[in-house]
Structures are given as structure tokens and as C-alpha cells.
Design a protein around this nucleic acid. Structure first.
Lengths: 246, 246
DNA sequence: CTTAGGTATGGCACTCAGTACCCCTGATTA
DNA sequence: TAATCAGGGGTACTGAGTGCCATACCTAAG
């Protein structure tokens, strides 16, 4: 990626309510969501949030660079996780599968706290500011995936284009399944839906298609023969026979 | 699309410097760009812009809902144009080709004023706020394309997913070529580059591939036969023969 | 025990985007 | 001439985000 954002994570790195007393950061998140869901995002001021959390107004901006960021508290961590995962992937394996697995890391974050995710979804649906902010978050994921693909596709002539398109497709498929699940209120298994959606992308872009796929490889009871014009018929029949009696 | 934004176009619809005196709207755009390029986006206040344009501060917000919007003055029109185009497409023809043509409408807007487009690109590259704002603009294009594809793919089981993925791929390919051109300072033919990039998408997603394509349909001297397991051999041979002696 | 330094926080004071409300001017029409 | 309406101006206000400084606490060195 080009410009690193150095998103302020705040003084204490936030234990996430593991031990006893909640962190200032967690208190702010909790208070903000209570108020946002209750009276709405723009109807809530920073003073309202800090007042409810019992901290000074100045402290809010120590942990979150903007009012919108408190709605997406864990994306910074997920982005770091994704970057680490892709860096650890090395130069082996299928690039498309790798970025799909990287996308699944983001999904894991959503699935870890369904009610929170659904509440946030309802919020972002209604508030334009949050919708736009979410776009910028998703954009950073997409650029991260694209950067990885670009490196892996560097040998190809159309590598950069392919990287951008595949990254966009992966993100779109992931988000499609995720949003469907969020719209349903968090019912059913997201993982399954995302696997299906990502499988759609893998089948069309990956060099080495999945074993259970049906699109590139024909169904089990169908055989495909490719032959040049002028191929002697005996060779055709031979090929077909060896395939048909499988 | 779900929510219409009703972007304020302002009192006078802006003649775009066709006749004599420039409109208030055009004066604001001109003044804003002069200042943004000179001293930077965040270093320029609304008062600076309106002062240079010779209008009252209140008038700025009559024409542009936010400071960022003055940088993208023509996107609202392009979006309307795209919507109209897709609506006029009807239910015939290849959906993928249609959305690609719709994307080319946006390209036309960029290509109509290369220097302006390049200047804006340099601006959006540097200013995070503008980068995010551009994302929201692009997002609206993508949603418009996706909505059209969704309607055309309504018969398919995976129609909605396919629509989202294809729309994302089209936008990514379009933007890839466009940004490459903008990075070059506006040298060469954008149209050509975008055609190439969109051709990449069409080749992988369109049902009826382009005549000059090489990927999806095998070369001309090859015949493909698909048969179920258990198909009598005579039927296979019959099918192959009728194909081989073309 | 005291002191130095680093960290988490609170408390202003300030800039500026965006909005609500009201007023002015000029042109058209009844 | 009065009524109407649209483009534009002015003022005051809210609230996000920032800079600067003071304070409390905790730890390590003296």
C-alpha cells in the first residue's frame, strides 16, 4: 500500500473487558452505541458520549480520530491481521484462494459478535456519514488484497489489472454474503454463505479450481472432449471411451 | 437504488460557461480549484472561496452540500446520465456489455476535460477527505450498475451475487485504466485503455463473448463435445462427425 | 524518601464546516 | 401598483476536531 494511515489506537491498547474494569476505550464504545441506537447518530454529541462514559471530552479524540470511528473499533485490528496473514503466505499456493482466506478473517470478526454486527449494520444503513466511513474501511481491505495479488501477478502482462479486478470481486462477494446475513438479523451460518460466494469468485479466477466445483469442471455424469478439427475419429472414440467407462 | 440523495444542484442549473457571464456555480468551482491547488484543500476555508468568487458565504452551500462536493461538480450529472442509459437499455442485449458501456459514459466525462481531471486526481491523491468522498461517488455508480444487473439476472439463482461481483469488477477495471491514465498526466488514449480493461471483464463474465476474444471459446480448429455418461457411442460419433466436417 | 520522567487524562480556547432564520433586490405578473 | 417568487446576502448558532497546558498517577532512579 502507498500511504500508511497510522490510525490512533489510543494510550491503553484496550483489553476488551478481559480483566475487571473496562478500559476508557471500551467505555466510550459502549456509551456511544447506547446513545446512537437510542437517539440516533447525529442527535448524539461527543459531550453526550463522554458524559455517559464518565470521561473528559478530550479523551474521546485520544482514542478515536473522529466520531465515526467509534462505530468501527475493531477494523484497525482486522486490517493488521489481514496484512500479517498475507505477508505470511509467501509465494506459494493459489493467490486467489489466499485473498479469499484473508477476507474470511474479516468475516470472523463480524461473526464473533453477531448482535454487535447487526446493530452496527442497522446504524450504517440509516446514517449516510457512517455509510461513507464504512466505504473507506472496505476500501483499505480491498487495496490490501490488491497489493498482494499485484505482487503475485507481477509476471503477467495484465497483472495489475487482474489484481484490481479480482480484489474487487472478492470484496464484493464477501460483502454480498455478509450483508445478506446482517439483513437477516444474524440468522444462520455466515461462514457457509461466504464460502459459497467466495467459491463463485474462485471458480472464475483461480488457476487451480476447487475439487468440488461444478462450473469449470463439468458435472460428474458429463464428459467433455476437446479435439482439433481433422483429428482422426478413432482417436476421438478412444478418448471418449476411456472417459465414459470411468 | 434504495435511497435517492437529491443532491442540491443549486438555483441556476449552471450553463457551464456556454454563454457570456459565468454562473455563480462556475465561479465557485473555478475559485475553489485555484485555491485548492495553490494552498491546499484544508488550508482553504469556505470564506476564502466565496471571497475569491465574489459571492456570499451562504451561497456556497446553496450550490454544494459540502466543501468536498465542489471538487466533483459533474458527477451528479454523469450519474443521472448513466441511470437514463441503463433504463433505456431495456431487456435485450448482453447485460455485461451494457454496464460496460454505462461505465464508458463516466469515462467520457473524464476525457472531456483532461487537465481538469488530472488536477482533480492529484488533489484526491493527497487529501484523505477527498479520497473518501470520491469513494462514495464511485460507490453510487457501482450500486447503479449492480441494480441494473440484478434486474437482468433475476432469473438466475445466484443473480444477486453475480450482479454485485460483476458490477464491482466493471468499476475496478474502469478505474484501473482511468487511474493509470490520470497518473500519466493524461497522455495517450484513455478510451483504448479502458476498452482493453473492460474487455477483460467482458471475456470472463459475458455470456456472448466478443468476436475477437481468445479466452472463453476455444480456437477455431477445435470442437468441444459434452455428453452424459452412458450416452451411446453412436450418438457421440454422430455428434462429433457433424461438427468435425464443418 | 525524594525526584525525574513518562503516561493517561481533564480543561479550556480556538477554528471552521454546516445550518436556521431573516432580509434584500429585482423581475415578472395580476 | 401590489403581489409573488427566486437568487443571493448577512448573522448567529451548534458541534466536530485541534492545540496547548495543567494535573494525577505510576515507576525508576537518586
Amino acid at each position: 500500500m502507498s500511504e500508511e494511515q497510522e490510525q490512533e489506537q489510543g494510550p491503553g491498547a484496550g483489553n476488551g473487558a478481559a480483566g475487571g474494569k473496562p478500559t476508557t476505550r471500551d467505555a466510550l464504545i459502549e456509551a456511544a452505541f447506547q446513545l446512537f441506537l437510542d437517539r440516533g447518530f447525529e442527535q448524539t454529541t461527543i459531550d453526550d458520549i463522554t458524559g455517559r462514559a464518565g470521561v473528559g471530552r478530550r479523551s474521546f479524540f485520544r482514542y478515536f480520530p473522529s466520531k465515526e470511528d467509534v462505530v468501527f473499533p475493531d477494523h484497525e485490528g482486522a486490517l493488521a491481521e489481514m496484512t500479517a496473514f498475507l505477508d505470511a503466505c509467501g509465494d506459494g499456493g493459489d493467490p486467489v484462494t489466499q485473498v479469499c482466506d484473508a477476507a474470511r478473517l474479516v468475516l470472523r470478526m463480524y461473526a464473533a459478535n453477531p448482535t454487535f454486527s447487526v446493530e452496527r449494520y442497522l446504524l450504517t444503513r440509516k446514517v449516510p456519514t457512517l455509510r461513507i466511513h464504512e466505504l473507506s474501511v472496505v476500501w483499505r481491505y480491498e487495496r490490501t488484497l490488491a497489493a498482494h495479488l499485484r505482487a503475485r501477478y507481477s509476471a503477467r502482462a495484465d497483472g495489475a489489472l487482474r489484481a484490481d479486478v479480482v480484489a474487487a470481486a472478492v470484496v464484493a462477494a464477501h460483502n454480498h454474503a455478509l450483508r445478506t446475513w446482517l439483513r437477516s438479523g444474524g440468522a444462520g451460518d455466515v461462514r457457509e454463505a461466504v464460502d459459497l460466494a467466495l467459491g463463485f469468485v474462485i471458480d472464475t479466477w483461480s488457476e487451480q479450481p476447487r475439487p468440488g466445483a461444478d462450473a469449470p469442471e463439468p458435472a460428474d455424469d458429463v464428459v467433455v472432449l476437446v479435439a482439433r478439427r481433422g483429428t482422426p475419429m478413432w482417436r476421438v472414440v478412444q478418448g471418449i471411451e476411456s472417459a465414459l467407462d470411468g
